[in-house]
């Protein structure tokens, strides 16, 4: 099989795993973990297309992945601080019990 197809299938499986975790787990931190796995799958896609695409010397996908990693780190920091703030407010991080926006 074409190596690009193999890479895309791997990344689709990784995305599906992260998505399944993000929509089925109860704990808020694990939802963020699932989102991180999905972002990793997207980055793997970009790198695969950069490596097997027509113009790898232009470094487009490569630089895109570097920027996307920086934004994923920012997203993780803000998301986890939100989880901590919700835990302090409602004494739980179970998403089924967090039902109101009022503080």
């Amino acid at each position: 099989m074409n190596p690009l197809t193999i890479c895309l299938l791997i990344s689709a499986l990784l995305f599906a795993t992260g998505f399944a975790g993000a929509v089925t787990r109860r704990h808020a931190i694990l939802v963020l973990v699932g989102i991180e796995l999905m972002l990793n799958a997207a980055n793997l896609n970009l790198i695969a297309f950069w490596r097997f695409g027509p113009h790898p010397e232009a470094l487009t996908g490569f630089i895109f992945v570097l920027f996307s990693m920086a934004l994923a780190a920012a997203e993780a920091a803000v998301g986890l601080s939100l989880v901590i703030a919700i835990y302090r407010h409602q004494q739980t991080s179970n998403l089924d019990e967090v039902r109101e926006l009022k503080g």
Partner: peptide
């Protein structure tokens, strides 16, 4: 996939920072 720089950035950012951040959040909650 011949993306060595991205691989080391991944280890630095994700294994080094994001995983530790998640462990800290588990600790704090």
């Amino acid at each position: 996939l011949n993306a060595e720089f991205v691989a080391f950035t991944e280890i630095l950012v994700y294994v080094g920072a994001v995983a530790i951040l998640i462990v800290m959040a588990i600790l704090l909650t």
